[in-house]
Every structure is written in C-alpha cells, then in structure tokens.
Amino acid sequence: MDYDDAYANAEYIPNAADYPPRWAAAAQAFRDALSAAGRARLNLSYGPTDRQAVDLFFPDGQATGLLVFVHGGYWRRFGRQEWSHFATGALDSGWAVAMPGYDLCPDVSIAQITGQVAHAIAMVADKVPGPIRLAGHSAGGHLVARMANVLPGAVRDRVERVMPISPVADLRPLLLTKMNDDFRMDADAAAAESPVLTPRPQMPVTVWVGGDERPVFLDQARWLADAWGASCVVEAGKHHFDVIDGLRDPKSEMMKTLLG
C-alpha cells in the first residue's frame, strides 16, 4: 500500500482547492455577525502562544450547554478561524460553541497538541455551565477521542457525548507516510496517541464518517467504533470535506445525534 496516497484526501475530492477559501470567507462573515450581535468572545487565551486561544459563541438566550468543536488539518494546517460558521447548528439549537486553536506540527508533537486541547476545554468549561458535547473532524476527531480519557475528571464528568467525525483513531499507519517528517513519531508515540488503544470511555460515543471517503478513513472509523463498542454512522454521499456540513443545520441527523 502507498500510505501517502491512502491518506490523501484532496486529490480525490472534486474542486478540493475551493473548500478552504470558501470556509475562511464564510467563517469571517459569521464572526463579524456574531461579534456585532454581542454573541462572540474571540481570542480567549489559554496558553503562551497566539494559537493557544479559543473562540466562544453564544446562542440567542440562555445556553443549554457547551459544544466544543476541534478542527482538523492533519495536526499541521488550519486554525480555529476557518471553521466558525460550523457553529450554526448548535447555536440555533440553543447551545454555546467553543472552537479551540492549537499549535501545529512540527513546532509541537501530537501529544503536546492533545494536552493543549485538554487545557483549552477545561478553561472554557468554566465559562459555560451545563452539559458538554465534543465533536471534532479528522485530526480533530482524533483529538476529541483522546479527550474522552485525558480531560480532568470534573470536566469529563460533564461530557455527555463525543462525536469523532472521520477520525484518525490509529496513528501507527502514519509512521509510513511522509507526514511523519513533521510528526516525528516513533512506534511508542504513535501507539500512545492512538484512541483505539486507550480504554473505552464512560460517556456515549458516536463515530461519524462519510460514505464516499477514502477507504482508510472508513477503516479508521470502524476500528474506533469496534474498539470502544461505539455506534458508527456512515453518511451516504459525503466525502472528507463535506461530511461536516451537517454541523450547520440544527435539523440534520448529525446534530440530532450530537445534541439529542
């Protein structure tokens, strides 16, 4: 198997290059609108670098609880600012939404990113009372799966559901990709950061993946669901870039599952 090709997404998605600028433009318009309405608290610092910050959005009225969405990008790309508009579905359902940023490889290790995200969630959990739901996409799916075991106990006890979307749940195959030049993992590090090798969490977990994704992502989703005894939803007709579109629609099956 050519592992670099197997884990490549953009090369197999029509007009893939159009997605990042479209996400960025929609996210900026969303932040501008929520800021003008007094419903956004941006750049809440939780650590010493600029990327260690959280954007927090509020619904119109008292929040039912807190959804945390962790972005992807193979731990090497993007930031919290490109994804703000994906808070729409939860906000329209009456939930506050936090979107943490984090430092990227190769400046830090994946294990350090895991620690940063845990720190960010603990910080923002103090600002919004009530239940917590976690969702993350791709590398973010890996990170929210890791949160099921690494969050501080008082915060973890508030987490009512975790939804890894198209996650990388077993990092060991990535040792065979060129991306590992940035990850700098050895076998022990990859195993330690692989959710499939961690204890089954106490809270409910739903793994979500697109039916048109690369075969390895369908495998990764199934591996995590099997390891944790979790449900796995394969959404027909969705690829790696549009599988998260359901987050924008409060009536989508994704949002009903995540917040219901």
Score class of each variant (00 low, 15 high):
Tyr74His: 04
Val209Cys: 14
Asp60Trp: 00
Leu224Asn: 06
Ala53Phe: 08
Val70Trp: 08
Val234Phe: 14
Gly79Val: 02
Phe217Gln: 06
Tyr74Trp: 09
Gly101Met: 08
Asp103Lys: 10
Gly141Glu: 06
Ala189Ile: 00
Arg77Asp: 15
Ala169Arg: 07
Cys232Gly: 08
Val128Gln: 07
Gly47Cys: 05
Gly246Ser: 02
Gly260Ile: 06
Leu259Lys: 10
Gly94Ala: 09
Phe86Ile: 00
Gly38His: 09
Ala26Leu: 15
Ala191Tyr: 06
Thr88Ala: 15
Asp157Cys: 06
Val124Ile: 15
Asp245Ile: 03
Val209Asp: 11
Asp55Trp: 11
His142Val: 06
Ala98Arg: 04
Gly61His: 07
Ala120Tyr: 08
Arg214Asn: 04
Ala221Thr: 01
Phe58Thr: 02
Gly141Pro: 04
Trp75Ile: 01
Cys232Phe: 13
Ala118Leu: 03
Ala96Cys: 06
Met203His: 13
Ser252Asp: 03
Asp50Tyr: 09
Trp75Asp: 01
Phe86Val: 00
Pro199Trp: 05
Pro199Gly: 07
Gly65Lys: 10
Phe69Pro: 04
Asp32Pro: 00
Ile113Asp: 12
Val209Ile: 14
Tyr19Arg: 10
Ala221Met: 05
Met1Ile: 03
Leu218Glu: 04
Asp60Lys: 02
Gln28Asp: 13
Ala145Pro: 01
Ser166Gly: 13
Gly153Trp: 00
Phe241Ile: 04
Gln52Gly: 11
Ala8Trp: 05
Trp75Arg: 00
Thr64Gly: 14
Leu247Phe: 15
Pro199Ile: 04
Asp4Met: 11
Thr177Asp: 05
Leu176Gly: 07
Arg200Tyr: 00
Gly210Glu: 05
Val128Ala: 10
Asp107Val: 14
Asn43Leu: 01
Pro250Arg: 09
Arg133Trp: 11
Trp223Asp: 02
Asp126Trp: 00
Ser45Gly: 14
Ala25Lys: 14
Arg31Ser: 06
Ala25Val: 08
Lys178Pro: 02
Gly73Ser: 03
Arg158Asn: 09
